[in-house]
Simulated assay, not measured.
Amino acid sequence: MLLLSEEQTRDALPFPDLIDALAEIFRSGCVMPKRHHHDMEIPGEPDGTMLLMPAWVPGGYAGVKVANVVPGNSGRNLPAVSAQYLLSDARTGQMLALIDGGELTARRTAAASALAASYLARSDARHLLVVGTGRLAPNLIAAHMAVRSIEEVTIWGRSGEKTEKLVRKLREQFPARIEVAEDLTESLGKADIVSAATLSVDPLIRGAALKAGTHVDLVGAFKPNMRESDDDLVKRAEIYVDTREGCLSEGGDIVQPLQAGLISPEDIKADLYELCRADHPGRQSDESITMFKSVGAALEDLAGAILAYNNVKR
């Protein structure tokens, strides 16, 4: 059985190939039972979450990810997500590979955002604003650069010191101009693409601050009590999701407006299945504000794990 470290997993999942792999599995589909979602009490800090995410292609590959999400790890200088992925042969049941789940999760999450942006962001989008300074930030930059010609990146985080440190590091990795966002509201009004990856329970992305044509990518807030967008954004935007089932029950950016009666399930224009199968054309106007909400799906992990396994096995 192959054992893929964090570095090996990263090298085996180049973003252009990973984005293509996600598009293909959303087109072809797979068996994806509802994931297990368990709160874990952690004394003295917010609850953690254990996720169990199985998926398989009959007669092909099968896999399951076990992920622990611990918001309190930000104060320990540790990643919020710790995970492993077990890939198997779906015909024989043979265990094939144990893949670093944290790196797999970060890269497939960013790739799903970029896949959505390929349908929803304006073709001339050049300025990316990233809200959040965690593990996903550099992955979101690299993934969006794979689908749009990003020339300027602005980073906003709650901690100025942490944000400045990240910006210095990112300047060594990317050719784009990368700056600290001193004022979030002002930065929202300048960006062509806004990508938020936080564990916030209070809205950060104000719809009134956005210019026409902005694409908003909401990656964090994966539980019903979490939220990154405000009501103005939800009311202004054309809404898209990674999967309807997941976002209608889990993501606070969709669940809370639904409960408040601001939107109905019919207001979701399309999910990634429909976009990738050309059942919906995606963005149709340069002036529209588009909003993509993702909570993650097991088929994304499976597609990434298969790609990593085959790239390493060669």
Rank of each mutant, 00 (worst) to 15 (best):
residue 44 G to I: 02
residue 47 D to W: 07
residue 49 T to Y: 01
residue 50 M to A: 10
residue 52 L to P: 05
residue 52 L to K: 07
residue 52 L to M: 13
residue 52 L to S: 04
residue 53 M to P: 01
residue 54 P to N: 13
residue 54 P to F: 01
residue 56 W to I: 02
residue 56 W to A: 00
residue 57 V to D: 14
residue 58 P to D: 10
residue 58 P to G: 08
residue 59 G to E: 06
residue 59 G to A: 12
residue 60 G to C: 06
residue 61 Y to H: 09
residue 63 G to W: 01
residue 65 K to R: 09
residue 65 K to E: 03
residue 67 A to I: 15
residue 67 A to V: 15
residue 69 V to L: 15
residue 69 V to T: 12
residue 70 V to I: 12
residue 72 G to F: 04
residue 73 N to M: 07
residue 75 G to I: 01
residue 75 G to E: 14
residue 76 R to I: 09
residue 76 R to Y: 03
residue 77 N to I: 06
residue 78 L to A: 15
residue 78 L to D: 05
residue 78 L to G: 11
residue 79 P to E: 09
residue 79 P to H: 11
residue 82 S to E: 05
residue 82 S to Y: 08
residue 82 S to M: 13
residue 83 A to G: 12
residue 85 Y to V: 14
residue 86 L to R: 04
residue 90 A to E: 15
residue 93 G to T: 04
residue 93 G to R: 07
residue 96 L to N: 10
residue 100 D to H: 12
residue 102 G to A: 11
residue 102 G to R: 11
residue 103 E to R: 06
residue 104 L to N: 03
residue 104 L to K: 09
residue 105 T to F: 04
residue 105 T to D: 08
residue 105 T to N: 09
residue 105 T to M: 08
residue 107 R to L: 15
residue 110 A to S: 13
residue 111 A to R: 14
residue 113 S to D: 12
residue 114 A to I: 08
residue 117 A to C: 08
residue 118 S to H: 05
residue 119 Y to T: 02
residue 121 A to I: 00
residue 125 A to G: 10
residue 125 A to D: 00
residue 126 R to M: 05
residue 126 R to D: 15
residue 127 H to S: 11
residue 129 L to V: 12
residue 129 L to E: 05
residue 130 V to S: 05
residue 131 V to C: 06
residue 133 T to L: 11
residue 134 G to K: 00
residue 134 G to T: 03
residue 135 R to D: 04
residue 135 R to M: 11
residue 136 L to H: 07
residue 136 L to G: 05
residue 138 P to W: 01
residue 138 P to H: 03
residue 139 N to M: 06
residue 140 L to Q: 04
residue 140 L to W: 09
residue 140 L to I: 12
residue 140 L to H: 08
residue 141 I to W: 00
residue 141 I to P: 04
residue 142 A to S: 13
residue 142 A to F: 10
residue 144 H to S: 14
residue 144 H to F: 01
residue 146 A to P: 08
residue 146 A to Q: 11
residue 148 R to L: 15
residue 148 R to P: 14
residue 151 E to L: 00
residue 151 E to F: 03
residue 151 E to S: 14
residue 151 E to N: 09
residue 152 E to R: 12
residue 152 E to D: 10
residue 152 E to V: 14
residue 152 E to K: 07
residue 153 V to N: 01
residue 153 V to F: 01
residue 154 T to I: 02
residue 154 T to V: 11
residue 154 T to S: 10
residue 154 T to W: 08
residue 156 W to A: 02
residue 159 S to E: 05
residue 159 S to Y: 00
residue 161 E to C: 13
residue 161 E to P: 07
residue 163 T to V: 05
residue 164 E to V: 01
residue 165 K to Q: 15
residue 166 L to Y: 09
residue 168 R to W: 02
residue 168 R to D: 05
residue 171 R to S: 08
residue 171 R to W: 04
residue 172 E to H: 02
residue 173 Q to Y: 11
residue 173 Q to K: 13
residue 175 P to T: 15
residue 175 P to I: 10
residue 176 A to G: 13
residue 178 I to Q: 06
residue 179 E to H: 09
residue 180 V to G: 06
residue 181 A to T: 02
residue 182 E to A: 06
residue 182 E to W: 07
residue 183 D to N: 13
residue 184 L to M: 07
residue 185 T to N: 09
residue 185 T to G: 05
residue 186 E to I: 05
residue 188 L to I: 09
residue 188 L to W: 02
residue 189 G to Y: 05
residue 190 K to G: 09
residue 190 K to I: 02
